[in-house]
Design a protein around this nucleic acid. Structure first.
Lengths: 120, 120
DNA sequence: GGTAATAATGAACATCGTTATCACTCTTAG
DNA sequence: CTAAGAGTGATAACGATGTTCATTATTACC
């Protein structure tokens, strides 16, 4: 199961993973997929991105615990882990300037990867 | 209706707006609220943020068309419009470095505003 | 090995936000 | 006044996710 998500490589929705597993012949329930995906996310083993259309997508992430963001291909879901100290600093500083505390932030960059661009 | 969203001040879900209108005595349907909110968003009159728990929140935004991000209070929904040329530059540059095109990005900062922090 | 306790599973159902239907009303043009 | 068109809202439909619970797999202990 863990392997399934790893194999997918990019950000995938629960239903995607479920479909892939079923297609591969595994008899697995949707509930189980959701459960595991959430567990992975809770343990920091997987990164989560909420797409604009209400889907939650997961991706196995080696750098557990490390704070980072993603550059995601909106066609195939492939993602690069990116990091920027300056972004973190900017967020902190901006929040402080307006008197906000307990700060958190989401930063995701979407685009079309070279492979997908070539394919079209 | 437009006024209702303006009055709310911060990011509010369709259901919130619906509730506020009903509470104010207006007889309005949920469908209509959704329709208008989406229309505002389409016309760029309102900004949209998808919260982590699958809700879509809207906020009336003066700076129509201008690209900006938000510093949002996760308690009361109040929001400050923030802007950072450096963030835009970083996103562009990062995408280019990995060969991604047709780039877009979401940047939202969440925290607890001074008022809400004081209230607790 | 055998057995009891425990955890994991998955089918069906519940929920929640959102969207589509469609009859009805309100407005506008003639 | 009347007919056409737009807007409205109650309700049903929908898709993603969460929960329930009986069944199955696993582990611990004898």
């Amino acid at each position: 199961m863990r392997q399934a998500l790893i194999d997918e490589g990019g950000f995938r929705s629960a239903q995607d993973v479920y479909g892939a597993l079923r297609a591969a012949g595994h008899k697995v329930g949707l509930s189980t997929v959701y459960r595991h995906l959430q567990a992975f996310s809770d343990q920091g083993e997987a990164d989560v991105i909420h797409t604009g259309d209400g889907e939650t997508t997961y991706r196995f992430c080696g750098d557990s615990g490390g704070h980072h963001h993603h550059l995601v291909c909106r066609r195939c879901g492939r993602a690069e882990e990116v990091e920027s100290r300056s972004i973190e600093r900017w967020a902190e500083e901006t929040a402080k300037r307006f008197g906000y505390t307990d700060v958190d932030h989401t930063v995701e960059v979407f685009g079309v990867c070279a492979a997908c661009a070539a394919a079209s």
